[in-house]
Design a protein around this nucleic acid. Structure first.
Length: 584
RNA sequence: GCCCCGUUCGUCUAGCGGUUAGGACUCCAGAUUUUCAUUCUGGCAACAGGGGUUCGAUUCCCCUACGGGGUACCA
């Protein structure tokens, strides 16, 4: 079999989100497994939505993930250029080809005329409201105008678009690797614009021409494209390329998390109430006046505080005043459906692989990288949202994913994102990483927190003690403080509960016993402690808790004897003395 | 409105005509660690509804309901 060629083709309209990363990942896994080629193509045919820095961001983020390409905008290659804005001449040529073949036509309709047409159809109760085999007869295009007039208009430089001429009433059948056979009547497909009046192609045209020219064998993309797949099939047909048409693979969508799971977090709930109220007031500033704000706020608050009846509360009621209808709609949109770029900011979890700073507003959106995720944990979790290996394996590194991935195990329905599960993956990856592998990552975190990082052997010991109790990389820095400096404060609650009048005596005794020890290791330290407890006939907790308090100042962390070993004799004894002096 | 896709525990999913419907996350209980976390053991929890087809349907077909996507000179 021929080696497959696949591509990931984002548009630089902002940062890539998780769904995009997953699409890139599936393309990558497939290409690597099959020994095929993976191309990164940038689909920047919409000048209006271009966002500076987005392309660089996409490349950087994919790079962090470890998703590598064979050809692309950042690598070059034989099939380039890989940026669609640099391929205008190519598209023009192919559009002309279609016009010559009678498969496409010029259209001169203005926006107003198009709107009028849609309104007319809606009023008439028509099922479709599109430019199609029926309506094109009433519009200004090269099918209704005389050849002379068309020529005159073109020569005069009138703005025009080129539309595909969709054939009337044919069954468009195609095979999707995930959905199997899909059939759509061509009457449901409209005469989509292929070439815009700015001379640039639309997605549909550029996509088909590029995929054809770049020898793409499999189009692996999100399900949001499924409805336009018939158009794409018809385009291949119009060009006469149907025999080399790529295979279609439409991936199930990544959906917003279960609202109930988000609402568990009370702090987040309060924050979300404010945010959503603001967003709503802004969005509906025309319909809802500012003095309704408090009503909206309390409605939002009400809905969010009752996650179990969530869906019920958002059902519309005939008697609802206008603002309430809008609010219900708005909240529904905010909590259900496809995961969107805004969700990270309002639902309290990252949707982007890496932090993104909006070039216009300067606002920052959180990314998984900065949140302390290991890239492969992130990808592993993502891989399982819409695909599974068919056995009970869940933790799979990249090699294993490449080995097990298969198109026929992609699931059919959208997958709700679950932050808890994502966290669990990261935790597992940290736990299962060797101390050495973690070293550079932890070092980076410690540097950010301005903690000493020069002593690798110390760091390795610290990592060994902390990695079992950490879910995210930055937590290493948060917890490592005890290894780099004496406690400055003592947890008040623990002092009250566990520090007794006799604690001083016990710790002084322990201080003496430890001081006399020939070897400063966890086990002998523990033995000395046990001897003390036995001789004085007390409970170990009576000494252990004050000891932990003395060494770290906080109620939890790794085993006290391990901590003592790592921080060393001098620091340990000093901390005991200090605590005894301070707490009496 | 119209078109397309989908529907197994709260969530991600296994199942491809006969199963005590399996696993994972979350949650709960217990054990270990006299802290926290880890680990281990156990538990709660699902085939959307109605018709067919069949000796037998979670599994195949149809309808309904529900969910999702699309419906731009955006991708």
């Amino acid at each position: 079999m021929k080696k497959p060629v696949v591509r990931f083709a984002p548009s630089p309209t902002g940062p890539l989100h998780m769904g995009g990363v997953r699409t890139a990942l599936y393309n990558y896994l497939f290409a690597r497994q099959q020994g095929g080629t993976l191309i990164l193509r940038i689909e920047d045919t919409d000048q209006n939505r271009f966002v500076p820095g987005a392309e660089e961001y996409i490349i950087d983020a994919l790079n962090w993930c470890g998703i590598t390409f064979d050809e692309g905008v950042h690598l070059g290659g034989e099939r380039g250029p890989y940026r669609q804005s640099e391929r205008s001449d190519i598209y023009r040529k192919y559009v002309e080809l279609l016009i010559e073949k009678g498969e496409a036509y010029y259209a001169f309709d203005t926006e107003e005329e198009l709107n009028a047409m849609r309104e007319r159809l809606e009023k008439a109760g028509s099922h479709t409201r599109t430019y199609n085999f029926e309506t094109r007869k009433q519009m200004n295009n090269s099918l209704t105008l005389s050849p002379e007039e068309v020529k005159a208009r073109l020569d005069a430089g009138d703005p025009y678009v080129v539309r595909i001429k969709i054939p009337e009433n044919v069954e468009v059948k195609f095979y999707d690797e995930v959905r199997k056979e899909v059939v759509v009547n061509s009457n449901e497909v409209d005469d989509k614009v292929l070439l815009k009046s700015d001379g640039l192609p639309t997605y549909h045209l550029a996509n088909i021409v590029d995929d054809h020219l770049m020898d793409v064998t499999h189009v692996i993309r999100g399900e949001e494209w499924l409805p336009s797949a018939p158009l794409h099939v018809l385009l291949y047909r119009a060009f006469g390329w149907e025999n080399t048409m790529p295979k279609w693979v439409h991936l199930p969508l990544l959906l917003k998390p279960d609202p109930g799971a988000i609402m568990k977090n009370k702090g987040l709930r309060r924050e979300m109430t404010d945010k959503l109220t603001d967003e709503f007031m802004q969005k509906h500033s025309e319909e809802v006046s500012e003095d309704m704000r408090s009503k909206v706020h309390s409605f939002v608050q009400n809905v969010l505080s009752n996650p179990s009846g969530f869906t019920q509360q958002l059902k519309e009621n005939e008697k609802d005043p206008g603002f309430l209808k809008l609010a219900k709609n708005f909240l529904h949109g905010a909590f259900y459906g496809k995961l969107s770029k805004r969700d990270g900011d309002r639902l309290g979890f990252p949707v982007f692989p890496a932090d993104w700073i909006d070039p216009k507003t300067g606002a920052k959106s959180a990314g998984y990288r900065e949140a302390g995720y290991m890239p492969h944990a992130f990808l592993n979790a993502l891989a399982l949202l819409g695909w599974n290996p068919g056995n009970d394996e869940e933790i799979m590194n990249m090699d294993r994913l490449i080995e097990l991935f298969s198109l026929d195990r992609i699931s059919h329905s959208g997958a709700r994102f679950d932050q808890d599960k994502m966290k669990w993956f990261n935790q597992s990856y940290i736990r299962n990483s060797s101390d050495e592998a973690l070293l550079p990552l932890v070092k980076a975190e410690l540097q950010k927190a301005e903690l000493a990082t020069h002593d690798d052997s110390l760091l390795l010991q610290v990592i060994a003690l902390l990695k079992e109790r950490v879910s995210f990389l930055p937590e290493f820095a948060e917890m490592a403080g005890m290894f780099f400096g004496d406690p400055q404060t003592f947890d008040q609650n623990m002092v009250e509960k566990r520090w007794k009048p006799e604690s001083k005596d016990y710790l002084q005794d322990l201080h003496a016993r430890w001081d006399a020890l020939p070897e400063w290791k966890s086990q002998p330290l523990h033995d000395a402690f046990e001897a003390l407890v036995a001789e004085r006939e007390i409970n170990s907790g009576q000494v252990l808790a004050p000891l932990r308090l003395a060494l770290t100042g906080i109620p939890n962390g790794p085993g006290v004897f391990d901590i003592a070993e790592v921080i060393g004799k001098e620091a340990s004894l000093r901390r005991i003395s200090t605590a005894v002096a301070k707490l009496g």
